[in-house]
Computed example of a mutant assay.
Amino acid sequence: MSGTAFPDVDPTRVTTTLTDGVADVRLARPEKRNALDPAMFAAIVRTGEALRTTPGVRAVVLSGEGPDFCAGLDFGAFRAMRNGERLSASVDLPPADGPARATGQRAAHAWARIPVPVIAAVRGNALGGGLQIALGADIRLVHPDAVLSVLEIQWGLIPDMTGTQVLPELVGRDVAKELTLTGRRVSGTEAVALGLATRVEDDPLAAALAMAGEIAALSPHAVRAAKRLLDAAGRVDLETGFAAEQDEIGALIGSPNQAEAVTARFERRAPVFADPDLR
């Protein structure tokens, strides 16, 4: 896939380009700080879910066009809430096939469900729902001056895009409560110190694309297996986790891509790996 978007995704909301195994996904509403309106929700969900089964994808970079990652809900959504309306509930999407059912939850959890690593490049604002979408990524590279906030409490709300379940795992239950109950803003530098982000970068997008390129050059079967195991860690009992580890290593040893990795290293050349068959 090349070009600017999946056929059923509004390119005025999200664009995607695939180059050398790296899917470069960009929220594309910079004039509104990439705020979340119904069209943006639909485009994010459709893109994230389509990438799960797109051939040739070995890593994903998620960023926002313009100065911000995503400033959260569009002001129109808050106006509608005063009348009891929830605009995200009206988004037309295919039925959900995973644990996330609500549109907002799907917009965040879709990235966690992608079987290859997802790297979020965050600069400017990542507020409320925008932060929760970034939390769906495996790795978050942030500008030191980025602004991140679990902002919902200041609008009389709670984070409902998977944030209450994901945040404690990253920062600990007490810090998750402090951030959620105050809605205070933290810099990219503090976000890393708290565990909310992975590391700071002066150019998060360039760093994310470089990291994604490195990952895309590795065995895609091993990368996918590693992500599966690490995602399960702490969510299954040790017996199950240890058994899964042995199942994965058993499937990798002697496989064509593993043999190619060994051969290429001995021959001091770049390996040539085959992508998984997604049929």
Rank of each mutant, 00 (worst) to 15 (best):
G136M: 00
V116Y: 04
F273A: 08
E248C: 08
A110I: 00
T4E: 10
D138R: 06
L238Q: 12
A146R: 10
K32S: 15
A191P: 03
D277R: 11
A43C: 03
S2T: 15
R269K: 12
G124W: 00
I215K: 09
A108K: 05
R29I: 09
V272E: 15
D97Y: 00
V45D: 03
P256N: 04
G72A: 07
P38Q: 07
D202M: 14
T53A: 15
R279M: 06
A80V: 02
P94L: 02
G241D: 10
R82M: 11
L93Y: 07
A216Y: 09
T53F: 09
P168C: 06
V61C: 04
I253K: 07
A191H: 03
L218P: 00
L62D: 08
F242Q: 13
G136W: 00
N83P: 04
S2L: 09
R184G: 08
P7C: 05
M1H: 13
P276N: 12
R123I: 01
S187V: 02
R46T: 08
E152M: 03
L62Q: 08
L51F: 07
V45F: 01
E178W: 07
R140Q: 14
D231W: 02
A134Q: 04
R140I: 15
G213P: 07
A274N: 09
D203P: 05
G172P: 02
A261M: 11
N83H: 12
V142W: 05
G98S: 14
D174F: 03
P276R: 01
V14D: 09
T180A: 04
M161E: 14
L141D: 11
Q258W: 13
G76M: 04
R279T: 15
L252R: 08
V45Q: 01
G66C: 14
A251H: 13
S90I: 03
G254R: 10
T182I: 06
M40Y: 04
A212K: 07
A80Y: 08
F266I: 15
S88P: 05
R86C: 06
L179W: 02
Q154R: 15
F75S: 15
A222C: 06
L181K: 10
R185S: 08
R140N: 09
Q154G: 10
A243D: 15
A217Q: 12
G21I: 01
